[in-house]
């Protein structure tokens, strides 16, 4: 660690720490359980968490500006519901996908505009958005709606073979493309750098003549879009739409982003870190399922401890610099 920290600037430290934790938890698993350290276990981490990765990507944008988006879990549920209901009504898949993505983005736009125009705390606005989206699910149907559309079924069950006999689903590819696009936008476009600037100091960014309003609204649109995309991936994973899907998933996304080294106060963090955060959470879940005797609630306990540890680590880094 010391050799690494000596060379890497301190802003990379939390991300490095997350990867170290990921490697360590994975190492523990491969020592204790036979068949843990295989390519397919790693691939399954991505397959089972593709939607969470996409969600964490959107959440990273919002948290980088110092905001928060509590609506993402509900928007996932709403997206599964809209997709399932529209497919049942006979819409073609090529129309359902853009419709769902547009709905999620529009919800994000609405919340972003309210937050920016009326200077309301993001917490409250997105909390309202969370209730709204969750409620809308049950307007469509109170029952779970299964998806029988052949295109969706084919996408969900189809796999890609990687060298070494490891198979992944299409959802993994979509999630990784989302990560790549997000990293590009955040680091190589003016919009992305303004996201960091707003998180660092919003008043300074405004005085520098940057378009802070556009960015503050924009991150919620991105988060809304990502939630809708995650919802589509989730509907592929579950092959159903249901109003009680993804309850509390917004908190998993926030946890992944924080464990991934982003500061909740904004301005510091990387998309790659958030992906690592998701992988850490996923590895813990895998570990517990390999153990077999532990209740899945142990996942929550370990995540809680990890979250605390990371927040304290960040405090220490911030105080030292």
């Amino acid at each position: 660690m010391t050799a690494l920290t000596a060379r890497a600037p301190s802003r990379f430290l939390p991300v490095i720490a997350t990867f170290v934790v990921f490697v360590a938890t994975f190492g523990v698993g491969s020592l204790r359980y036979e068949g843990f350290a295989t390519g397919q276990v790693v691939a399954n981490l991505f397959i089972d968490n593709a939607f969470l990765i996409v969600l964490a990507v959107g959440m990273t944008f919002v948290i980088l500006t110092g905001g928060i988006d509590l609506s993402v879990g509900s928007v996932v549920a709403l997206s599964t519901m809209i997709a399932a209901a529209a497919l049942r009504a006979g819409w073609p898949a090529w129309l359902v996908v853009p419709a769902v993505l547009a709905t999620g983005s529009a919800l994000g736009l609405l919340m972003g505009v309210v937050i920016h125009r009326f200077q309301v705390q993001p917490f409250i606005v997105t909390l309202a958005g969370m209730f709204l989206a969750r409620g809308l699910c049950f307007v469509i149907s109170v029952e779970s709606v299964s998806i029988k559309d052949p295109t969706f079924r084919a996408l969900a069950t189809g796999t890609l073979e990687l060298p070494g006999g490891v198979t992944i689903t299409h959802t993994v590819v979509i999630a990784l493309v989302a990560v790549a696009v997000a990293a590009y936008v955040l680091h190589l476009t003016r919009f992305g750098r303004t996201v960091y600037a707003v998180g660092g100091s919003e008043s300074s960014a405004r005085l520098m003549g940057l378009r802070t309003g556009r960015v503050k609204v924009g991150v919620y649109v991105i988060s809304g879009f990502c939630s809708a995309l995650a919802g589509l991936l989730f509907s592929l994973y579950m092959l159903s739409g249901y109003g009680l899907h993804a309850v509390g998933m917004e908190l998993d996304a926030i946890a992944a982003v924080v464990v991934g080294g982003s500061l909740l106060s904004g301005g510091v963090g990387f998309v790659v870190g958030s992906v690592a955060g998701v992988l850490v959470l996923g590895t813990i879940q895998t570990l517990i399922s390999f153990q077999g005797t532990l209740s899945s609630w142990w996942t929550k306990i370990v995540i809680g401890v990890l979250l605390l540890a990371f927040i304290v680590l960040q405090r220490l880094i911030v105080r030292r610099s």
Binding site: R190, S201, S204, L210, G267
Partner: peptide, 26 residues
């Protein structure tokens, strides 16, 4: 009060909003 963003690099603080770009990317 210095109206800059302490979380960004010196170069970014100087050129934020006017970064040289190539093919749309900074």
């Amino acid at each position: 009060e210095v109206a800059l963003c302490a979380n960004l690099t010196v170069a970014e603080n100087i050129l934020l909003g006017r970064e040289p770009r190539r093919f749309g990317a900074i």
